[in-house]
Design a protein around this nucleic acid. Sequence first.
RNA 1: GUCCGGUUCGUCUAGGGGUUAGGACACCGCCCUUUCACGGCGGCAACACGGGUUCAAAUCCCGUACCGGAUACCA
Length: 512
Amino acid sequence: MSVRVRFAPSPTGYLHIGSARTALFNYLYARHTGGKFLLRIEDTDLARSTEESTRSILDGLAWLELNHDEEIVFQSNNADKHRATAKKLLAEGKAYRDFTPKAEPNDANVKDTIKDRARANQGEKNMRDNPFRDISAEESNARAAAGEPFAIRLKVPDVRTGSDSDWASPSGKTSFQDQVYGLQERDHAETEDLVLLRSDGHPLYNLAVVCDDIEMAITHVIRGQDHLTNTHKQVLIYEALGITPPTFAHLPLIMAPNKGKLSKRKHGEVVSMTTYRDAGFLAAAFRNFLALLGWSASEEQEIYSLDELVQKFSLEGIHRSNAVFNFTENDPRKWTDDKAQWMNAEYIRTRPLDELIPFIKPEMKAGKLWREEYEDDDKAWFENTINLIRQRFFTLKDFSKQGRAYFSEDFDFDPAAIEKNLSKFPDLKIWLPELADRFEVEFADKPYTEENIESVVKAFTEEKGTKLGVVMNGARTLLTGVAVGPSMLSVFEIIGLERTLLRLRSGLAWAK
RNA sequence: GUCCGGUUCGUCUAGGGGUUAGGACACCGCCCUUUCACGGCGGCAACACGGGUUCAAAUCCCGUACCGGAUACCA
């Protein structure tokens, strides 16, 4: 049977880094096995789901180039089928009506409330003590017919009485062979009679997921390990339905630096995929980073192309322990994981230019630096320039920020660079325009190349009795606005004689 | 509380009875150099703890601690 996996986010926010990794692993598994990668939007929680979130998640996936197969499934469209399934289980006696009035949700601290309630039970709670569990069909039907509201709960087999277990595993527990965590078992006594259908007729998560996974013919469910207990509940639903469950593989979680939960609320934009897109990350680099968070090919390699990832990906390589996404709040240099930043810089510096330039182009357009000539007449110059300046760049943003002076006269001067390279040497205010004059004479009849420039500048500094570095760095500041960059000889040459003369004479930096 | 899972350098990880416990990032130092955030070389740094099994345990078993997840008419 051909593999079919799905990524099933709920649209209650942007694409979170953990979800993105889940999507990536599903994608890699599908491509590795020649199967299908499907997308399902789990929007059954109308109150929290938004179209904007859906769009943002789709944007994030598109950015990461995790293209899905087939039509997107919107879970809310299947609600009728979910309801029908619940009714069927009810009719078969595998579920029952619970007429207990709905408790008011205390949504301020739902989590805490749940936890407190569970703790108060001291683990002594009998999960089968619902008073409506065993009322007669007649009574149940009559009350329903009278218009009394009810939820539908799955009738999880009672291990003490041995009743209701004709459809469930006779072992008294649910079990499945997780592809990552191994054999998972859970006593029926540990599982509550979960609600399938709310009293307002709304299908709930576990029911919806099972129905849709069946309908979509999903063969492998790859999702976060926070779903491990849900899986037992879902296995029970599969058993009630008489359908063989798919294969499950649960993924370790991605944690915050304090090993706590990584959340939008607490950690903000650092967890959102769009942040990385907007910060000038290359999708390929971020994907590479994500792939190595919780998975490894057991070899000493860090850089993997998408093809390599597809080829090498396997469920066996997934870890069981959670991984920390390492960053330091309030430290601009460490705003996100070091390795992600390094990975991006590595891609910027080493990817083939023809692979990189399509991503640099929109960045330059946004900075009003793009010229059509860069694709025809000035293509060679453009590529040389990109190749030269990218050696010290970290993100795509750098091409339109630090790299501005290479493409436009409209660039800023870094005050620190002025201080360090110009202000300390007042003579430069006279010398640099003089150097421009010298260049004009010297290069009237000889090529403006690194070699020639070097000899002219050397001769000039000797005459002035100063160090080469003083003139070079002063020129660097005037020509590029910043104190760092490639070899100054290369910079002179790439900027060209005309612009060099203009900038050496401008005195703009001093005016600032 | 209960159930489930986890624990190798600061972080991501390799290894899985005998290794100088390997790599990457980060950090530090040196070199290159006109600057530098590139590059080169080097350094610091880890098997949670306690028992057992064994000639030999980071590796297998048990326990403890700690961390995480789950425990909804949320997803």
